[in-house]
Nucleic acid binder design. Structure first.
Lengths: 260, 260
DNA sequence: CGACCGATTGACACAGCTCAAATGAAGTGG
DNA sequence: CCACTTCATTTGAGCTGTGTCAATCGGTCG
């Protein structure tokens, strides 16, 4: 987990929309940070907290979640390396969700004060970070559609497609296969279904030959089939360049690499 | 609708988190704008479009929506006067959702160029607008939880509570009653349920004595009961003052554009 | 070896969906 | 001012996707 260059993934993301000036890159790279190991299932921040720093994921996965009716958990996002998990704490007084680690993770904490100062100085950086916020919101809207208007198997397929694309964009998936330390219950809580049903859906996806799924390893065997089933199109992720990097052309007519 | 001061509600919102300098207020007030009447059900922007201006709602209601599986509509947000409906088009290349009017509405279009220029000049304004984005995202997460982990009647109750609070915050609801030109089908598409079921839920809410609901007029008769049923707490809206406003103040006169 | 956790299975219940039709309210045009 | 259309609401009757409950199985770790 290249701790030596903790900002590389973040910078890579910020530059998706356009190049940053060398100066701006330096500003980001020189932000003070505290690298911390997080244990599996550890809660980093709790709903209602008012943290004074943001959390950049360097390795592993975090997720944000909320409770409904006191006991029912809804996962509101998966946060992958290169993402800032709680940028909104910069301007909102209290956190509207909790933040936890899916498995063991490595994060860097960035103090609000320095972050704010940096953003005040550079409108370009401010824009780049703001843009990340917008993408996050677009993902949230897509999830909303997923929960509101697709049935269980399509929801799961959609989430898998999204993760594959997002992870591939940060080099954490190759050949549409990736490792993620979740349980079927986590998946269920992201998809708004019960864990029992999540299990049945996973089995059905296996049976249909769409995915291999052993423990924490997910491999998409039939991208077209899964994307069709999950009604997935990656436009909302705004990864123009990243997508070409992944598979060099037409979005949904992608061929699955034969190898692996 | 007070067209004479189109920015009043926007300014009011931007200043929730802290006062703007007179200069910044002037910058906002002097933004060039094109006021336009929108017919009921008119689509203002379509998924995939790349508009070159943002849409500020002056009167009436807009909503953003997406299609799943080609035909199933999910409403992803209700946009009320004072909201900017599509601020994200400022930095994202294409719109990830469509934008339409619930009933007749009045909007002001703000060209991206001038908006960007203004935000580049003033970090304070930039922050204030960014903050609005964060609130929008928080609302989206709450909706996600709503769809994923609450049953139908609670979803509807939650949406009603949210609208009441948001509208009361911009003086468009008084005594927990408001006018909104939606149909039960619109409500259903926001809550991820069928319109038939939405109807049954509405009837149940009436029967329980929680709301009065004639045509477009919604009146919450038992706030505590409805909020409890909908598992609603307004923290995520980040409206410090809103709750007290709801309980005891008598908001000002309100008008929804009747003709347009 | 026992304890624990996650995956898996089966049986059953029910919330909410679909289909279909009736009712009601609000124009619209003759 | 009345037929006619249109659109929203309402109601009824099955049907089904998904939830809940309760075991069982299997792997991992101390």
């Amino acid at each position: 987990m290249e701790i030596g260059r903790p900002y590389s993934r973040l910078l890579y993301r910020l530059e998706r929309s356009g190049t940053l000036s060398p100066q701006d890159r330096r500003r980001v790279a020189e932000l003070p940070l505290t690298v911390t190991n997080i244990a599996a299932h550890q809660e980093i921040a709790h709903q209602g907290d008012a943290p004074s720093r943001c959390t950049l994921v360097l390795g592993g996965f975090l997720f944000s979640h909320k409770l409904a009716s006191g006991s029912r958990r809804q996962i509101t996002s998966f946060i992958v390396p290169g993402d800032i998990a709680d940028l909104h704490t910069l301007h909102l007084s209290s956190l509207d969700h909790s933040l936890s680690a899916l498995g063991p993770a490595v994060v860097a904490f960035l103090p609000h004060a320095e972050l704010k100062e940096m953003l005040d100085i550079s409108p370009q950086l401010s824009q780049a970070f703001w843009r990340e916020t917008f993408i996050e919101a677009a993902i949230c809207r897509e999830w909303l559609t997923n929960l509101g208007r697709r049935e269980a198997i399509a929801r799961v397929a959609h989430v898998l497609c999204e993760l594959a694309v997002r992870l591939q964009a940060v080099d954490l998936a190759r050949n549409l296969a990736f490792l993620i330390p979740w349980t079927q219950t986590d998946l269920a809580d992201a998809c708004g279904i019960s864990s029992v049903h999540a299990n049945r859906v996973v089995q059905e996806l296996r049976r249909m030959g769409l995915v291999d799924w052993d423990a924490r390893q997910v491999k998409i065997r039939d991208w077209d089939g899964l994307a069709r089933l999950g009604d997935f199109s990656d436009h909302y992720l705004q990864l123009r360049t990243a997508r070409t990097a992944i598979k060099d052309s037409a979005p949904l007519e992608v061929k699955v690499p034969e190898s692996v």
